[in-house]
Design a binder for these strands. Structure first.
Length: 839
DNA sequence: AACGTCACGGTTGAA
DNA sequence: CATTCAACCGTGACG
């Protein structure tokens, strides 16, 4: 909180409300100003902002800086703020006066851009914002600023619970819930497109025909067109456009042309309305220009034609609505980029970023996690060009969420659609990239408000199920695994197929550039399905094994291990892993939304928990390889017996610390490209030494690799397993471990070691004992620190930074593998945490 | 306590 | 050009 405050009199809402500056803000400002010993006049004049980074609305305050073009309004507002400022802090010292002068003087120095848009951009200037129960500021009827929306999603991705997000950002939990739901469904944080209505009669087809008539016969009258439309049966009598409508369509020259490169050209218009022909792109574009969440770049300026409404500043409107007269003349039309420009400017010039580094004693070390993290979500200038609307949620890349997504508010209106929710979901499921879907508006309005439409039949259950659209992994894998429209459920009712299961053919048909191990256990299948699959494979094998045609299996890329009388299968399938990766990177929501990736055994005993409970090992939800302990296929046997004794097909021994284990080369090779290479290079090898690994640890790893054994990730073994996954490139294991850690961290609400702990912040949730857990967290951080995986580093740091310095120091001393870089990063994070929380 | 839903009072903008 | 109205918004109560 000790970062240079910036003074802003504007907020991000299109409506530039007279936002009250609260006392604490001012106080922060003053104290910071004093502490900071004076920013230069230039700095202040360029900033005109007051806000700290901790204030969630900071950036949206900043964003509209350049958008407020009406100098008079601006000055008035500034004046109001200054007056308020003066009033509230009149007891302060001379430095304050100096600052006040600063602010007033900078007002005059502002190079305010003014253009025809000024009226538009100053909409609702006089609307008052409200404060919700949590103390958050909002404007009734208007969307939250885009950065707040993004923050909500970002926090949710980090595993922060919605209620926590709600408190943190001072946004109602209903709103958080809604935004997250929309993000899950549509992959965007953008608000919907507000206002307007779909053409009731001037449908795209009608508009096209009208234009055709006019093109073919420029002299044609509107009433003639109208008659022709009726004659040709293009419109029914009741839906025949009026002459004025036709005239409007004819007069409307405006075209939104989306070029192949994604840029948008707009042909001048003599009319403010958009062609219905270009309904979707036009509406999107229009919204883009007007939406607070998207007033960004690449959008075309609004036409100079201002509709005379309550927010208009023309003389008549000013008279009518008793607004003060507008003295401004438009000067240029470049305002559209204003938001972007200010954002960039802020990014570049904001003292906050620099100060982060400057304030730290470690400023010489380039280890700013926060800036690094932010970069993940930052838009590169080049990316800010208008892009095609975001595809369906399952294809959404993280980067696009914060670029194109919110550039295009959702059009959720209903009139142009002929599909109901289910159909839409179906379409989304089957072809997420379908043009039809992209162009088709979505409708989220409540049933009761919907215009009665025969097409739209929605039951509460379907509404409910709308949140359960399968995630990308499920989608992609199911498509492949359940090819030929044969679901496993159907297969269960049929006698087991005697040929190779059809889905395997489909799987093998995919080109695989590199073999990747995916155990017979598949996260998408439940135990019963596993059983089914197993039986099919067993049957297949029993039919073919007598042929002794090993190549058959090689070709089918099934590796078969014979173990006594049982047959175990696992297949190599790179597609699955790609799908997993795809899902991981594109759909990085909280772990709880990854039910197919990992089964999380929920705590059976759901007794009410104490709010200051210590997180115990037993309570950490373990992640089990099998979906249900009760339904595990009956393949269990003692792993110790199996691996410690030579078995018929074991062709390799591994010498580990404490003994040796008997394993199968083929399985290990399939699991690990490292081992595969090793075996290829040394075909005759019968023993390898891995004496740095303890026997118990090796058994855990082998239990994961072998399909017949159960392996549960726990806080104790996850560190070792993640290390092994790195070492032997066991990707699935790596992902599972990472998810476990993220999940584990998401359970941690506070660290109770901290003597400065602000109990209010952690009145809910689980607390961990820092003394006990810090070592664990540090060991995890050691594993991930050098990677760029901020998704795990960030939550780790978020927890670690809550541990006291003494505790951190002790643990770091004990753990010899903590690099100096890591130490620096940890101490820095701690310092920033303390600074923000308690100063 | 957490969270999904929805009525409500509001804004918006095409028709 | 004023009005209408269906879309959207976030809040906050409810279950």
């Amino acid at each position: 909180m000790a970062h240079t405050p910036v003074l802003s009199t504007i907020n991000d809402y299109n409506s530039a409300t007279v936002t009250p500056i609260n006392v604490s803000m001012i106080q922060e400002t003053i104290s910071d100003d004093i502490i900071d010993k004076r920013k230069t006049t230039e700095e202040l004049s360029t900033e005109i902002l007051i806000k700290s980074e901790n204030d969630t609305t900071a950036s949206h305050w900043i964003k509209d800086q350049n958008n407020n073009n009406n100098q008079t309004q601006y000055e008035q507002k500034q004046q109001q703020e200054v007056e308020r400022f003066n009033h509230e802090i009149q007891d302060d010292d001379d430095e304050l006066d100096e600052k006040k002068l600063h602010i007033t003087s900078t007002t005059d120095e502002q190079q305010l851009q003014v253009d025809n848009d000024s009226n538009t951009n100053n909409k609702n200037r006089f609307c008052s914002s409200s404060i919700n129960q949590l103390g958050g500021e909002f404007i009734n009827g208007r969307p939250l600023p885009s950065d707040t929306r993004e923050k909500i999603v970002k926090l949710a991705e980090q595993g922060v619970r919605p209620c926590e997000i709600s408190r943190q950002l001072s946004v109602s939990h209903g709103c958080v819930s809604k935004i997250l739901k929309r993000f899950r469904l549509f992959g965007t944080t953008a608000p919907g497109l507000i206002g307007g209505s779909k053409p009731k009669v001037a449908t795209p087809e009608v508009v096209r025909r009208i234009r055709e008539y006019k093109l073919n016969n420029p002299q044609i009258f509107a009433w003639q067109i109208r008659e022709s439309l009726q004659k040709e049966g293009i419109c029914s009598t009741e839906k025949l456009p009026s002459v004025s409508s036709i005239n409007r369509i004819v007069r409307s020259n405006r075209r939104i042309v989306v070029n192949p490169d994604g840029t948008i050209n707009e042909v001048d218009s003599d009319f403010d309305l958009y062609d219905s022909d270009d309904e979707n792109s036009a509406k999107s574009e229009r919204a883009n220009a007007s939406s607070p969440s998207s007033g960004s770049v690449g959008s075309s300026p609004r036409a100079g034609n201002i509709r005379h409404r309550g927010d208009c500043r023309c003389d008549s409107c000013v008279k009518k609505y008793k607004f003060s007269p507008c003295n401004n003349k438009s000067t240029n039309g470049e305002i559209v980029d204003g938001i972007h420009a200010s954002e960039l400017e802020n990014d570049n010039k904001s003292p906050y970023n620099h100060q982060l580094l400057d304030e730290s004693n470690l400023n010489s070390i380039d280890l700013d996690f926060y800036s690094t993290t932010n970069k993940i979500f930052e838009n590169e200038p080049g990316e800010l060009n208008l892009k095609a609307p975001p595809p369906a949620h399952c294809r959404t890349k993280l980067s696009s969420i914060f670029t194109s997504s919110h550039d295009h508010p959702l059009d959720l209106s209903i009139t142009t659609t002929n599909h109901n929710h289910k159909q839409r979901k179906k379409q989304l499921k089957h072809n997420p990239l379908s043009d039809t879907f992209q162009n088709e508006p979505l409708n989220l309005c409540s049933e009761s408000k919907k215009r009665p439409t025969n097409d739209i039949i929605s039951s509460p259950s379907s509404k409910r199920s709308s949140t359960n659209i399968p995630n990308n992994l499920t989608d992609k894998l199911q498509t492949h695994l359940l090819s030929d429209n044969i679901s496993l459920h159907q297969q269960q009712q049929q006698p087991p197929a005697t040929s190779l299961p059809t889905f395997l053919h489909s799987v093998f048909a995919q080109n695989s550039s590199h073999p990747v191990f995916l155990p017979f256990w598949n996260p998408l299948l439940d135990a019963q399905q596993h059983q089914q699959l197993f039986q099919q494979l067993q049957q297949h094998y029993s039919q073919h094994h007598h042929q002794k045609d090993e190549h058959l299996f090689e070709d089918e890329r099934i590796h078969i291990c014979l173990n006594f009388k049982k047959v175990y299968f696992f297949f190599i399938h790179s597609l699955s892993l790609e799908a997993v990766h795809d899902m991981e990177t594109t759909h990085s929501l909280s772990l709880s939304s990854h039910p197919t990736m990992l089964h999380i055994n929920t705590i059976q005993n759901s007794k009410k928990r104490s709010t200051r409970e210590i997180l115990s090992t037993a309570e950490v939800n373990n992640m089990n390889k099998w979906s249900s302990q009760q339904n595990v296929i009956n393949l269990q046997q003692s792993a110790e017996n199996y691996f410690l004794n030579e078995h018929i097909f074991s062709d390799l021994t591994i010498t580990v610390n404490g003994g040796r284990v008997f394993v199968d080369k083929s399985l290990l090779a399939a699991a690990s490209p490292i081992l595969q290479n090793h075996f290829q290079e040394n075909p005759s090898v019968t023993n390898i030494d891995l004496i740095d690994i303890h026997l118990d640890q090796m058994l855990v790893l082998l239990k994961f690799l072998y399909p017949q054994f159960d392996c549960t990730l726990t806080r104790e073994n996850v560190s070792f397993l993640v290390e092994m996954s790195e070492r032997f490139k066991l990707n699935i294991l790596h992902i599972m471990c990472r998810n476990f850690i993220i999940y584990y961290l998401s359970k941690v609400r506070g660290v109770n070691d901290d003597k400065y702990l602000n109990k209010k912040n952690y009145r809910q949730g689980t607390q961990v004992n820092a003394q006990r857990e810090t070592g664990l967290f540090l060991s995890w951080l050691c594993v991930y620190f050098d990677s760029d995986n901020m998704r795990i580093i960030e939550p780790l740091m978020n927890v670690i930074k809550q541990c006291s310095i003494e505790c951190l120091k002790t643990t770091i001393d004990l753990n010899g593998s903590v690099s100096w870089k890591m130490q620096a990063a940890i101490y820095k994070a701690r310092a920033q945490y303390l600074e923000r929380t308690f100063i």
